[in-house]
Structure formats: C-alpha cells, structure tokens
Design a protein around this nucleic acid. Structure first.
Lengths: 178, 178
DNA sequence: GGGCGCATGTAAAGCGTTACATGATTGC
DNA sequence: GCAATCATGTAACGCTTTACATGCGCCC
C-alpha cells in the first residue's frame, strides 16, 4: 500500500490539515503506520493533484494560514476499493530479533540488560494503550458502529505489546536458567 | 540498522555466497529481515570495500563461478559493536491494522472473509515454524550455546503468529456478536 | 521443449529519513 | 529570555522494490 491509504482512512474519520494528520500519525493511526510531516505534505499534494482530496484555504489572522483537506468522492471510492483489495501479508522487520539470533556473541549480562530495557519499553507503550482504552472505550460492550474498527485496532496494539513482553520474559528465563 | 548487520549475523554463522544469503533471507533470518538478492549483492560489494568481508573466488566447471564471502576481523568487530549498541524500538507497519481501523466502511461479510484469510495465513506460517522447531530443536532443554539465539528467535516468530491468530479470532468474535 | 536451480549483477523509480527553513503567539 | 505550539514546506541522501539481463545443466 502506502501512506496515501492511511491518510485516506484518517481523512474519512475527519477532515484535517497536514499538521493535524502529522499529529494523528504520532498518536492513534501511527500505532501501525508512522509518517513524518514532510512525507505527509508531499503525499497530500499528490493526492490533491489526483483528485482524491480537495483543500480549503483558510486564512487565520494571528496563526499561519492553513489548508484543510477533505475526501472527495473519488478519494472515498479509492479508499473503499483499497479496503476491499486483498492485503498481502506484511513482513516483520525487527532489528531486535536479528540481534537475539546472534546473542551468544555477547556476554549474558549485556544481553539481559538489553532485553529488560526492551521489556520496559513495551510496558510503557502498553500503559499508554491501557490509558487510551479506558479513556475512549470505557464500555466495549456498547460500541457505536464507527468505533468498532478503532477499538479493535487498539486491541491489536495491546496484544502486540503484551506479546513483546511475554517474549522478553521467555528470553530472560531461558538465559537465567543455564 | 540496516541489511549489512543482518548479513554480518548470517555470515558469522557460516560463510556464504550472495546466492546462499538470499536463500537464508528467504528462510530463517528472513523471518525478521527480508532482502532480495539484488539488495544483497550491492551491500555485499560495499561490505567488501569496507573490509568487513573477504571474498574467495571459486570457479566451478559446469555451474557459474561463485564468490564465497567470509567475515574479516573488522567485520566481526563491527558485528559485536552493533550487537552491543542499544536497539531503537522498531515501529510496526501494518496495512491490515490500518484497514481494521476503517472496517465499518465495508460490509461485514467482506471483512470477515478477509480476516479469516489472514488467520489462515498466520496458521500456515505457524505450521512451518512448528516444523522447524521439531526439526532443529527437538529437545529445547538441551541446547548448545550457539543454538539458544536461533531457538529464541524462532520462538519469537511462533509467538508472533499465534498472537496474530488470537487477534483475528477476537475480531471475528466481536463482529459476529452484534 | 519448458521450467527450475545455480549464480551474478545493472538500472530506474519510488519511498522514507534527516537536515534545513520560516515566523508569530503563548506560557514558564 | 526560551521553549513549545501552530503551520507549511524544500533538498539531499539512502534504502527498497521492480524490471531487465545472462547462461548452463538437469529433470519431467
């Protein structure tokens, strides 16, 4: 896919400026797709040229002018078409896992420290997700139609971090018991 | 990081040609770092220029000539230094998760079909990993020193697939119960 | 006769990261 | 006075993907 489809998803939720999108990519959507503002502005310009979005220029006295992007019918069509297309299984790319493979080249203490640091890292993100969960979905048994997706995506994030923690624990235990 | 460090890890296990590496990246190492042969040949050339690897030219009558790359002392040093450097938490990039976020824009049947297909995909890879496990590590309580890393990496892969399956099941159940 | 395995590359295009650039307002 | 927030970009570089290119031997 590409960034443009993630932007389509975000704009379908709410129209936004490039700046807004960049912040969303730092928070919710960004759990599964990171993007810098530089990238976003470039792609946004291309999407406008392709007719997927339309921009409304808004002058603000004190603050800088802004361009609010909204989905066009064509953009919405492309979004639906993309959603319906089969998703190729994405490949994992984990520097940590590559290092784990070669762990016997390092002394045990260094490895254990690194694994504990990574576990703390997973835990910190998990704490953030738990907070989002209680803030945005306090009652998961009563979700509005458009909330199911974001809820399940957040659940996916939580599972990912928990899984990361479990793996770290397994590594630590395996190394300590020998 | 980059591909070069994954190649260093692979060459530390055994010297290899670019072709061999490409196959390894299709199998074991590739669980966590994919690379095409085009990429590998280019990086290998640069690594040789940097003195991290040394190549031995071998002419084979019938088959094409080959270059067997081995780690140099400098390469080994770089590998150890990289292993000891802190690993920045890698960002997830999941097209599937982005789609899940926007799932309410599609009809339920299409979504469920897609999620079931993805679950099957996870299951297929898990089956492959289970096979590797029984083939290479039939007795995990008696692992040689250099086997611990590859064993734990494989465990990580297994956990990842299982976690993927669990998430798919949660999505399916959530969608079916409403 | 056709496809696969071995073996090595070049070239172009697209995507992503990092650095640079500007400028006003608000809060500490 | 200094940092952060709002707001939008350009430029250079590097990594990744996709397409193109070659050529022999073996098996069905």
């Amino acid at each position: 896919m590409a960034l443009e489809h993630a932007i389509l998803v975000s704009l379908a939720e709410r129209s936004a400026t490039g700046y807004d999108l960049a912040r969303r990519f730092d928070a919710s959507i960004g759990r599964f797709w990171k993007a810098s503002h530089q990238q976003i502005y470039k792609v946004l310009a291309r999407m406008e040229a392709d007719g997927w979005t339309s921009a409304e220029h808004i002058a603000q006295g004190a603050r800088p002018d802004k361009k609010v992007y909204a989905l066009t019918e064509a953009g919405r069509g492309e979004l639906i078409a993309w959603l319906a297309r089969a998703t190729p299984p994405e490949q994992v790319r984990s520097e940590f896992a590559v290092k784990i493979r070669a762990l016997h080249l390092l002394d045990r203490v260094t490895v254990l420290d690194a694994v504990r640091a990574r576990r703390a890292d997973h835990q910190a993100r998990l704490d953030g997700y738990d907070l989002s969960m209680s803030k945005f979905f306090p009652d998961p048994s009563a979700l509005a139609e458009e909330e199911i997706g974001p809820y399940l995506a957040l659940r996916g994030g939580i599972r990912l971090e928990r899984n990361g923690i479990d793996w770290c624990n397994e590594i630590i235990e395996t190394l300590e018991n020998r």
